[in-house]
């Protein structure tokens, strides 16, 4: 088994889900509470990675962060090297790729929060910010955990975007799914089988957590 690839993958997935927790909560809050009539435009953009082929998404990200785009040039001037085929570039792509997996469960959980409770909190002098942390977040905690876990699991298994944006650099951008592909190309089926089985077990365990938590009969969340 290629432990270096596993290390890169876990690091990528952990950082992606962590950053998505911050970014996703903000976007989901806005999606759930905004009364803007054109909100659906943003909703569709957030959901785009669900239907777009990873190669298409990867292609656009590659172009967007490449040395010929303003974003890419700005980043290169700032840091000293360009984004494509680096871990940071891969992280950026992963965040976009897994965005709906975080935002949709978050927003669904926020939608479930009774607006009258929020109003009660306001009349008790609590700002919108405080109301979010004292009331909305505790009430939507299962949805938030679901979103984090799903984006983690989704990042573990990504292939197309990684190939387009990250390339295949050992210890930097070579993830588990790329490693499996390489092993198969080299006709090393035994190696591929081991890594594939590892990924299967981890993904299954992660989803097990999600479904166990969302099941009300289970006493995983006794506080509710």
């Amino acid at each position: 088994m290629n432990w270096i690839a596993i290390g890169v993958t876990v690091k990528l997935a952990a950082l992606t889900s962590l950053l998505l927790l911050v970014i996703g909560l903000g976007i989901a809050y806005w999606l759930s509470f905004s009364r803007w009539r054109w909100k659906f435009l943003v909703e569709s953009i957030v959901a785009l990675p669900l239907v777009l082929p990873p190669t298409v998404l990867g292609f656009y990200i590659l172009v967007a962060i490449g040395p010929h785009s303003p974003v890419g040039r700005f980043y290169a001037d700032l840091v000293g090297h360009s984004l494509p085929f680096t871990f940071e570039g891969l992280l950026f792509a992963s965040i976009l790729y897994s965005l709906p997996f975080a935002v949709q469960p978050f927003a669904a959980a926020f939608d479930q929060v009774d607006r009258r409770l929020i109003e009660a909190s306001w009349t008790l002098g609590q700002s919108k910010f405080k109301t979010f942390f004292k009331l909305i977040l505790p009430l939507s905690i299962t949805g938030v955990i679901t979103g984090v876990v799903l984006s983690f699991a989704h990042t573990l298994g990504e292939f197309g975007v990684v190939l387009m944006v990250g390339g295949n650099i050992e210890g930097e951008t070579r993830t588990v799914s790329i490693d499996i592909y390489d092993e198969v190309q080299a006709l090393n089926y035994a190696g591929a089988a081991k890594t594939a089985f590892f990924l299967l077990v981890v993904s299954y365990l992660v989803l097990l957590c999600v479904y166990a938590m969302n099941r009300k009969v289970w006493a995983v969340w006794p506080q509710r």
Partner: peptide, 20 residues
């Protein structure tokens, strides 16, 4: 003036107690 700044006690019809 937002509700936060009015210094009220408001009790809605179904009480809206915080279940958490």
């Amino acid at each position: 003036v937002p509700p936060q700044a009015r210094h009220l006690g408001y009790m809605p019809q179904d009480y809206a107690l915080f279940p958490t």
